[in-house]
């Protein structure tokens, strides 16, 4: 197929260094989908959060394969370390003891087969779009290492960098105000 953008066409042997890298990549992909399946389908909320952590650990491996070890570390720190723990705290604080389950059977039609078909349709459309498009490869100009990321963050994208810090500050203040409101 014309549209496939592959860096090296030759397939490596199984018992070579490149073959081992391929096996490790397949393992990380399996980790991602196992975690995602658990997170979406688990009956108990705590298991869903554990699946989220597993999926994001695998996704950190995928980022490593996309030549960005820095983003892989950030993924582990922010998602696995912070967001999953935050959601686990939310489950502990905002769920009654006997109702920590997320029963999938809902009364509405939207939550049953319609949800599944919507997801399947999205997947089919995005996959066809990704595989059929003639992607155009541009010649490389930068290195993309962590030094280049830091330079671009403080020169080209400095406005967004300032704005994101304001967004985070507002999020902290808003979370404090919201969580305090119902308490009397």
């Amino acid at each position: 197929m014309q549209a496939l953008v592959c860096q090296s066409a030759a397939a490596p042997a199984l018992f070579s260094a490149e073959g081992m890298v391929g096996v490790i990549f397949l393992l990380t992909v399996v980790l991602v989908f196992t975690g995602a399946l658990i997170a979406v389908n688990a009956q108990r909320l705590v298991r869903a959060v554990a699946g989220l952590a597993v999926c994001f650990t695998g996704l950190a491996g995928v980022y490593y394969f996309l030549l960005s070890p820095f983003l892989a570390m950030m993924q582990l720190l922010i998602y696995v370390g912070a967001v999953s723990i935050l959601i686990a705290f939310g489950i502990m604080m905002a769920t009654p003891e006997e109702k920590r389950v997320t029963g999938m059977k809902s009364r509405s039609l939207l939550a049953g087969p319609l949800a599944f078909s919507t997801g399947a349709l999205m997947f089919a459309a995005l996959t066809v779009l990704g595989l059929k498009t003639e992607w155009q490869v541009f010649p490389r100009q930068g290195t993309g290492d962590i030094k280049a990321v830091g330079m671009a963050l403080l020169t080209t994208h400095s406005m967004v960098f300032e704005l994101i810090s304001i967004v985070l500050l507002m999020a902290i203040i808003g979370a404090l105000v919201l969580a305090q409101r119902g308490r009397n």
Binding site: C6, Q7, A10, A11, E18, V21, V23, L26
Partner: peptide, 11 residues
């Protein structure tokens, strides 16, 4: 084994 070269492909 084309399967082992998957990590080099965009798709």
């Amino acid at each position: 084994m084309q399967l082992l070269n998957l990590y080099n492909c965009l798709s």
